[in-house]
Design a protein around this nucleic acid. Structure first.
Lengths: 230, 230, 230, 230
DNA sequence: CATGAATGAGACTTCATTCAT
DNA sequence: CATGAATGAAGTCTCATTCAT
């Protein structure tokens, strides 16, 4: 039976897998198109074309354009959270966990800039609805990080001057801003050829995002102040 | 008062002032509507209604909806940059300058949350064009902050492990993320009544944004690590 | 009929034919609406309604309202030029060719007054752009006619007191003006019920446009002057 | 009283004259703007600016944009009809009258091309309403010409194979088409730099419109045919 | 399931006209 | 009379979504 199924050729397996595969193809296409055009500017037709399906097909897999956006966010966020959780789980003490988190995140940015661009720029703040929605999902990520901080504070290793949840926010803010700067700086000048004045560096031009992990580590753990005994 | 001015009668101001005043009224209205609906969702009609003018009047003051957005951004950004510059100028040593910057910013957020919401959420990443455009304007702010950092580093007071421009980015990221958390937490639940699970605090709920200045100060200058000699 | 054509079932034509057919339906509808309301006064909605399609459908077949106008002009002009060329080709000597041209044209006016009205009145001089555009297309028609004149002049049959291209223009002017008079006279009084004073006939009231061919023939070949030997 | 009137300076006379003068200024401005942009494309603001008055002022002299169009048409048509009538009145026999008519018309075209452009192109066929309206005014002109023809026919000088009113139409058509060709050819290539293929002359390029009077004379009186006894 | 032509609500923007000054 | 800022109706065009094939 499977042999004669039109989908059985080329090693394809079940219909359910086919369905999932096509859904993923659409999500990947949406990611590319959103990254290029932005969510509101992106047209469903563009995504369909990029995915190699008909416009109507999109609606067999997603209820609406909004639903597609949310599903994409969901999908990528799961991936991110899983990766970060694994990184943290692979370390032992709080400091190592923090660095693992930071390194995992910047590594991901560097490895998948298109996905990162969509996450960092397009998906986050598109609509009020999305904003509230994403807050929940980012919550997981933030709680993971806050857990690490709290652990370090509980161990007496880190100061508890800053409540762990807010410290987590702040660290996340650093990472996020660095990611944004790197992503926007990547193709600086862009299609408009308009370059910002190169004289005064505002940190927005090409730099090594992976190295930025060390900056975050340095700032977060030791701060700017020179240690008297260092 | 002087009766010979053609516009002085009946307390009327000059035509130029009238024009600027109405322009401002439209910008204020746009700010409120963008904050409520988001840029793409906001309709020109809504803004006109909010400003108490006819639809067509908008186009006597702005070339297009895009132009309105950019003008709003420009206007608010000037205000922000001026305020921060003044705060920094009022302080003497790098540490005081940094704290002045941070306090001025969080104070502004607290004082004008609607404006802050638009700046932090809507205006920043609306379109590719806007993104590039805003990058330039944020550049000013970042260079101001980077200047303070560099000054502290040059004075030997602060470590130069992190290049000043990137340190500025990171500090900005912290402030921005805290602002975002506070702004979204302010009316959490929103018009959809959907509340995030209250159990695990992710730092997104009501907190005192002004107090957050101290957190930033603490984290930036001393880091998390407990001083050996403290 | 042949069952193996994938589109032959149920008498359906090919998709390409469908597309062309609907395009034509829209053009026909536009012709009627332009004739009735004029190009600038005609609303896209009117055309859509007349064609029995949705507004948006127009834009699946034409880039803009302007494009629709141009396409209509193009379509009708091709038809006219082909008909006139065929008429001329079917005659042998210059005089016969001239009369064939004239008769074909007035015949067309009589047979398709709506199309003629749009060609003669609406499409010709709508915009600067259209004007330049149409000049090119009318050029073909004028060159055909000029060729006939030149042939007669070369054969020594006709005087070359008037250069052929300008003679062609003049003959075309006669035809055009007669067509205009007839078209406007057809439904004189129109929807406003305002009738021109019927006393003095200015040639604008109902007359037989087909007979006008003989007038053109008479005037063009012999002029008004009575022949001394006639 | 008149001395102190603000309008009395510079030899200006009564208020009524002022009013008429400004009305004329607006009409002249409208003529220029219509010639340049076309009736539908021309904006009332453009005309006001060209006339050096405020937008609202237009409405103190004309009921509407349509009224302005009609008044302009009226004004220019009166001038044309008066001129042609005078020319015809200055001649004695039908042939001379005909040539006087023709020469007066082409002379006018050559002398006032802007006015001619508006008459020939813009004003004639703008709207259904205008079309019917202009038919009446052109009627005068056509009746004048038809009178000349009829006179020649009555004198036995000219064949009555073509009814005078229709002969008048045809002659008018020649003149009109020549005028059109000359007007459009004047600035051929125009603002788009798109030149029609120069190879095949269609009579649309620069020629002497005044000489065209002779062509009309030749064609109308003698036709194309070579006289056997010539 | 897949297609993609068709739909039609709704957005932005223009511009003739008005009216308070 | 003159002004010109304001009005708001109306038009063109877009694009998410549907549904017959």
């Amino acid at each position: 039976m499977t042999v004669h199924s039109p989908d059985a050729r080329a090693g394809r397996t079940t219909g359910a897998d086919d369905r999932a595969a096509k859904r993923d193809r659409i999500l990947d296409a949406a990611e590319r198109v959103f990254a290029q055009r932005g969510f509101f500017t992106a047209k469903v037709t563009d995504i369909a074309k990029e995915a190699g399906v008909a416009d109507g097909t999109i609606y067999l897999y997603f209820k609406s354009k909004d639903d597609l956006l949310i599903s994409l966010f969901e999908s990528r966020m799961e991936r991110v959270n899983a990766l970060l959780a694994a990184a943290v789980a692979g370390a032992t003490d709080p400091h190592a966990k923090l660095m693992a988190f930071v390194r995992a995140y910047v590594g991901m940015i560097a490895a998948q800039p298109t996905a990162a661009e969509v996450m960092t720029i397009e998906l986050r703040q598109s609509t009020k609805f999305m904003r509230e929605y994403s807050a929940q999902r980012f919550g997981e990520l933030l709680r993971l990080l806050a857990g690490v901080i709290a652990e370090g504070q509980a161990a007496g290793q880190w100061s508890d001057a800053v409540p762990a949840p807010h410290a987590a926010r702040m660290i996340w803010g650093m990472l996020d801003e660095l990611a944004l700067a790197w992503l926007l700086g990547r193709d600086a000048g862009g299609r408009r050829g308009r370059k910002p004045p190169p004289a005064a560096d505002d940190g927005g031009k090409k730099f090594d995002i992976v190295r930025a992990a060390d900056w975050v580590g340095a700032l977060v753990t030791q701060g700017l102040e020179r240690r008297s005994n260092a």
